[in-house]
Nucleic acid binder design. Sequence first.
RNA 1: GCUCACAUAGCUCAGUCGGUAGAGCACUUCCUUGGUAAGGAAGAGGUCAUCGGUUCGAAUCCGAUUGUGAGCACCA
Length: 677
Amino acid sequence: MVLLSGWRMASFEHSGDERRDDELHRVRHSLAHVLAQAVLDMQPGATLGFGPPIKDGFYYDFILSEPLTEADFPEIERRMRKIIKKGQRFYREDLPAAAALARIDEMGEPYKREYGAELLEKHGLQELSFYRNGPFLDMCEGPHVHTTKDIPRDAFKLRSVAGAYWRGDSRNRMMTRIYAWAFADREALEAHVERWRLAQERDHKKLGRELGIFAIDNEVGRGLPLWLPNGTVIRDELEKLAKELEFKAGYQRVATPQLAREALYFKSGHLPYYAEDMYPAMQVVESRRLDDESEEDEESAPGLNDNAGQTGADEADSPRQGSRQGDGVEKMAVSIGSSVGLRDRATLSVKDAYRLRPMNCPHHHKVFAASPRSYRELPMRLAEYGHVYRWEDSGAVGGLLRVRGMCMNDAHIYCTETQIKDEFKAVMRLYQRAYAVLGLDNYVVRLSRWDPEDPKGRDKYVDNPGAWARSEAILAEVLREMGVNYVDGVGEAAFYGPKIDIQFTTVTGREESLSTVQLDFSQPESLGLRYVGADGELHTPYCIHRAPLSTHERMVAFLLEHYGGAFPTWLAPVQVQVITVSERFDSYAKTIVAGLRERMVRAELAPSSDTVPKKIRQGVTMKIPNLLVVGEREAAEGKVTLRRYGQKAQHTLSFAAFQAALLNTIESRSLEFLLPE
RNA sequence: GCUCACAUAGCUCAGUCGGUAGAGCACUUCCUUGGUAAGGAAGAGGUCAUCGGUUCGAAUCCGAUUGUGAGCACCA
């Protein structure tokens, strides 16, 4: 290896950042270069994007002439190991702006060129750094290992190939991204892969099928889950919990329809801001037969598609609307009324249009508006587990996490400005209580703010900078006063105001919002909500939107993964299963089951034709929390033998004692079974 | 929506070179009455996602569509 002038050995530089200087970080970053070298070796014309280290390894983005698939992984890995074995040294060179750009031009890397120019111009860098190892040259800020021999050859594994937009912007070209795991040694890699494999076992889609929680049928529709009996039990229990907590917190329940006329959604701001996320309109069409001789109304026939003309929606401006037509949206528009004989000579006009609701708030606002309100009624807290429907992108829909029809633990709190903080705190306490009951503690609180710099700003957020600043300050104050740690989420706000979101990570490593509390300074005004203040004047209330228990869909998905399907007794679809040692004890078992069911315990008798081990196995497979084994010993003395899920130790106790303990466990929603002293 | 992969029984999967479909579990019936993770036997169950093409012949090869998964973008 000839050391070019200007190049120095990589290991001499230090960035001063402790994490970045971390050895594993260097190894991962260097492996990304080794991967790129191997891929360029196989496809000499490939173009490079970014190739950074990530939390469990690294990736590299390419534009390839021939698609790579996972079938190519063994060959790529083989070449990578070969490169590592060569002991290529990493050399660094810093070039001043002009020379750096010339160097990138020589490299023929248009994406590196774009980024390099941006670093120099926007970020004001004076020079750019380059790294070379063997024949591979990359514009890169480092750091790297000293030589490829410093990279363990058996501690990385290519994971998956995926598409990713250049600079994370869907207007840009899609590149091919290769993800890989990488660790300090083989044991760490294998342990990680094993943890990852175990996590897949907890995937809610797998557990949901195995435990009979939900099913999705394509004839019903994508993202429209069917709740099976076991899943419906969990929903009912969650609703019961929410209703109790909300009743105690002074909420009132309401019930409102799942659709409304379009005009409501123009006023609320949903159609101007979120039309592309709503199901298409259901149009009420009026048809009138034409006489053969009078054809003057011919041009009004296209009115069937002329939704905008009727409603004022400027949907032509929505860039996504056009692309969705291929998705069958046009065909889904429903004609109500006289659709008979449309092929005959008839003229059509849209009389009215309805939309499935994407959110419950406009309906609740209308409940508020149903009668004149006084400040004495505030804060008014209106709650409903409301069904909403959203036209999620096809690529986003999956399992219970992203669905097109969902049921939300929703409520809207109407209050005065001075009440906002206390109400927000009360909501935060309510979700903290709910989470404590459910045993959830692995979440992150995010203050979701608007992004005034967002190029799509006007289309994405209500344009009222002063209100944004005030409301964001109130939320930050609430969090500070409550001593809640939170992360900043610029650009994560709702269109009508900032939010406090509770973020969870799924077993597959994806972060999703579970709960949300939002401050709305926009909708009450646009819907003309008013109350009479102490001063006798009309005022507009503030509105807090909140969903501590999320949607049933998302909450059950998280709970399935959180508990690994083994629900605490109060939530379990089957709380007790009775297993008889022989059919001779069926009548005793039936008495037990009937007694428990009389007290609303979800108890069942296992089928009697199976052997005891088989019945135990099935009960365990279904993750039933409490199995009761009864035979001669128990029947004679009115006892039961309790076998708790996941525990070898068993307890034989009188049925009366068991029942009392069980009812206590359920009543208190304990995560553990409360055995008698 | 985008990139890549995948689609065989309710579930998990096999199916060779293109020659007319297989296993285990689950299900049904019968036998077994068994004390802590699969007792035994028999039976039933498939338009190989859909549509089209190539071929004497397609689960198998090609194309389109739909769906699923991973990732990206999106996410009230």
